[in-house]
Design a protein around this nucleic acid. Structure first.
Lengths: 342, 342
DNA sequence: ATTATATACTAAAACGTTTTCGGTGTCAAG
DNA sequence: CTTGACACCGAAAACGTTTTAGTATATAAT
């Protein structure tokens, strides 16, 4: 077994309390003994047992992160970046990150309930919020510390970080309009998801602002943000009697599918057809043509999520309770040049 | 605070020991009291505190998984699938999975040392092995339970799951040869990585078996498996005075880059040029043309890794100490049809 | 000389479990 | 009536820490 505080105490003929205090920089221990204790600790290769510390302090020093296989959580191409930045930030604050799946057959709040009630974690990061989110409702009701990546349409006040999908898409669509497009399609995701709805709203407001009509034919909604679904949605748009000249796509993965659909019909994307995606996944810069898209700053998001959660857990005041980040528009070739004949 | 065993004991005028035993199905507790205890537990909404359980049992019930930002660990497109299947399997065995980054500035074994010595985890899953891997050496030396995804060239006996990259690539290259190709290129990764070296060997043995010469010009090695690197490597091959007619690429992401390089030169992949990737990432089926590739069965890999580690931790005999899975060749269009004029 | 104060240490409780051991009480066998 | 067996329950220790309260000694103030 690894050495304990008791071993150090016996070695130096001290009590465990003195050793503990020496290791934790208490004032009431002689500088000389402090020295001796620390040397002995090094000698024995001692590390404190975190389990015992957690039991005594009643804090786990662990952040919970529940992922879903079905949803766009773990299968999202940006998931890796989010996880990496959260791990980084958590380590920085000396916290662990416990990732947990949601066992199929149990409700979503149940996964959170289990983790908090059994004392596995101190709080949660929840991502991929719905407009009406049962997890958020549960966590608010039970007053469990958490920070969400995403907002909801419920009337609940909770700390979150989010990307302004509405403003982002609005800007992107405006860009298309400025390029001379009049018929602009939209490929979106089911609107129970907050961000899906948010992005759609950005599309609608951009059109309305420019006195362009909203045509339901031009807006297609798919179930999940896969390449395949983007392909199919694009096919549907291109088969319209009066197809769009530009399409705003809610995710890069779908945009890649849309790209393929257009190319199979011998449309030169960036010329015959403008396309804009959302996410700026690493591949986006390398499609043919490179994809114009809205970048989600995942590194910053992950870091702010855990910074905020740590504040909450340590009862420090939160600098900002609601953080909304603007996704910059990364203009590449898929959105094309200015059109002469609209 | 959440209720403890003590609360139940007080409510029923019992001792904590009897309550504990009632909850854990001990034989020496009357059926009737057992009943009463379980009802009270339900009434109070009691869940056992895992921290206390862990301290008492000296087992954490937690599997450790260390990821690196730099390496091909977390940035790998298959990482998500691996993580998902490990989470699933871990939950099935009632284990937690603690994911930890490797703080920059510390050595790789140090990350493992910290987790095990502080009692955060019972054992590890390590992935992305090198031919000479300091982490594996450390874990073996310290006799810390772990299972690796990947082998090494060190003379160490440890349990692992791996994909037979050599046999897989050999089969793929043989497929190209059977299609009539004589000049076959190879785009690989740095050979300190075991699997990179393994795949290259598959390429070499396939050529040798067919009495084809090994030309160093045709083998290019890049630093990381990105789209960009695949693109550059392909450009290099195509600029050869006598370029290959087929190329085996060590990862799908690079293959996508290679695809782009070929297309920019107006080569019809699957016709003028054959291309085979490795991984079968979700996008592989949706490139243009769809990518022939070797599938890594991540779901099975993740599950077997944790099944094996759990066996180790519970002192159960390991059904197989070394599992080697054959990556099936998924033939799509990028490898093309049989060539008439070789 | 007495009291106050500071210094350096220890004992003991606590965190919430599990588990060993011993102690009842009941009942049947001798 | 004694003995043992059995069924049921509780006391207590243990896991490795932290922290509170307290003790002993030395030093300073009165």
């Amino acid at each position: 077994m690894s050495p304990t505080i008791k071993d150090i105490a016996q070695l130096l003929h001290l009590s465990v309390s003195t050793v503990s205090k020496a290791l934790n920089e208490y004032p009431d221990v002689a500088p000389e003994t402090k020295q001796r204790v620390q040397e002995a600790a090094r000698l024995l290769d001692y590390s404190p047992n975190v389990i015992a510390q957690r039991l005594q302090s009643r804090r786990t020093g662990t952040l919970g992160f529940v992922v879903y296989y079905g949803g766009n959580s773990i299968s999202d191409p940006l998931f890796n970046e989010l996880l990496a930045s959260m791990l980084d930030a958590a380590a920085h604050h000396q916290y662990d990150l416990l990732v947990s799946g949601c066992p199929s057959g149990t409700s979503r709040p149940a996964a959170y309930e289990r983790m908090i009630k059994t004392g596995r974690v101190d709080g949660f990061i929840v991502d991929g919020t719905d407009r009406h989110d049962d997890r958020i409702a549960y966590l608010c009701r039970e007053e469990i510390p958490f920070v969400a990546f995403g907002r909801t349409d419920q009337n609940l006040d909770f700390p979150y970080v989010d990307v302004d999908g509405r403003a982002g898409v609005c800007q992107a669509v405006q860009h298309l309009i400025d390029l001379g497009h009049q018929r602009i399609g939209f490929i979106g995701l089911p609107s129970f998801s907050f961000c899906a709805h948010d992005r759609r709203q950005g599309y609608e407001t951009a059109l309305q602002t420019n006195d362009l009509p909203l045509e339901s034919d031009l807006m297609v909604e798919v179930e999940a943000g896969s390449e395949e679904n983007g392909y199919r949605a694009m096919v549907q748009l291109l088969e319209l009697s009066h197809p769009p000249t530009a399409v705003m796509v809610s995710s890069d993965l779908m945009a890649i599918g849309a790209l393929r659909a257009a190319q199979e019909r011998n449309l030169a994307v960036g010329h015959d057809l403008a396309l804009i995606g959302f996410d700026d996944i690493s591949l986006a810069a390398y499609t043919h043509p490179p994809l114009t898209t809205l970048r989600q700053p995942m590194a910053e998001i992950g870091q702010r999520l855990v910074d905020m959660l740590v504040c909450l857990l340590e009862n420090k005041p939160l600098p900002e309770r609601h953080v909304i980040l603007l996704p910059p528009l990364i203009v590449r070739q898929s959105s094309g040049e200015r059109r002469d004949n609209p």
